[in-house]
Structure formats: C-alpha cells, structure tokens
Amino acid sequence: MNQRHEHAMYDVDPLHHHPPQADLEDTRLTHHQVMQMAVAELLIEKNIVSADELRAQIDFMDTITPARGAALVARAWTDAGFKDRLVADSKAAAAEIGLDIGPIPILVMENTAKIHNLIVCTLCSCYPRFLLGIPPDWYKSRSYRRRAINEPRKVLAEFGTEIGHEVELRVHDSTADMRYMVLPMRPQGTGAMDEAALAELVTRDCMVGVALPRP
C-alpha cells in the first residue's frame, strides 16, 4: 500500500473549494495512519485478510451511496402498497427491488403532514449505511449529537429547513442494533415525474431528516 499515490483529503464545500493538493500527498503519515498500515500489513501477513479482499471491500463501499435509499423512497412514492411494506419490514421490501439493507434492522419512519422525523446517533454514529453509505461528518459531530434531541428545530434551521410548529417533530436516536431512515413526503408538483426522476429528488439529507426534497 503506497500512501503517496493516493489523493489527500479535499474540501467539497462549494463556497470554499480547493482542488486536490498534490503536495499534501507527500506529507508525513500521522501516528494513526501508521497504525492503520501496520494493522493491515499484520492481518495480511497472518492470512486473516488478503490485500485483494481489502481492495474489494473498499470498491464495494464506494458502490453504497444514498441512491439506494432514494430508490426505495421513489418506489414508495409511486406504489402505496410498497410504501406500507417498506414501513412494516424494510428488509423484505428492499429485497423486492434487489437491495440488501445489511445485517442490522432499519426502521423506515414516514414523514406526513403532521409528523416530521429526524435521525441522530447520540452515542456515536450508527447510521443506515447499507442504504445511505458512510455517515457525513456533521452526523458524527459533537454538536449534532448533543443538540439534535433537545433543540431539533434550531438544528434543522441551520440546515435551512423550517418545520412548522403545527408539525410534530420526532427525533429517533439510533443504536448499534436499530437504525432509522426517514421516508420524506413526495413534494407537490411532481405528479408527472416517473420513478427514476423522483429518485433524483431524494438526497441523503432528506433521508436523515435534515432537509426536504425539492421538486
């Protein structure tokens, strides 16, 4: 594994964009990066994992994106029976369209005109990874973990999301054994859109509950 030939971190904030910085790739490894390499090499030497398995796992993780969750949402928006099955048993419903939700149960929480759902993991970072991919930095941040449960409307406002006070806000605290995904409401004015076009409206943040889909 050669650290120097890989891309260093770069910023994806559109208002403050830096291109990948080649010079960063030559900075020294941190203690924990050395630890990661040492663990990987020891596991490979001891035939516990192979380099191919590691590469394949990383490639697999790259295929797990919020498009998977969005496909479920778009199907639910266009097929009421599917929506009921998704809310009742997400594993079985996802299997209908060939998606595996992974080993840990995921409860799909449906937003309605009266209820808005938000998910957090106050203890760490549990997240419906098999449907949304790796959790974003803010989901794992101290302030989101602390504040999402006692001032969720204020937190939502920071994401530019205003939920009317007539709407009940339900915050779901994820655990290692139970994860949640939000099923957002289909936006008005999307009657003519097909399932594929609808799926494009469903962002990761909509399925965490910090944003609403926009037509």
């Binding site: 650290q3 890989e6 790796i134 930095d137 920071e158």
Partner: peptide, 17 residues
C-alpha cells in the same frame, strides 16, 4: 452543526474496510 464535509481519505476507507 459543522456542515462542511470532506471526501473520505484513502486511509479512512481502509480503516472502514
């Protein structure tokens, strides 16, 4: 809430893997 995000670095993906 710090809404800035970063793309996952290779070493982070390797830890995850």
């Amino acid at each position: 809430v710090p809404t800035r995000e970063h793309l996952f670095e290779p070493w982070e993906k390797r830890v995850d893997a």
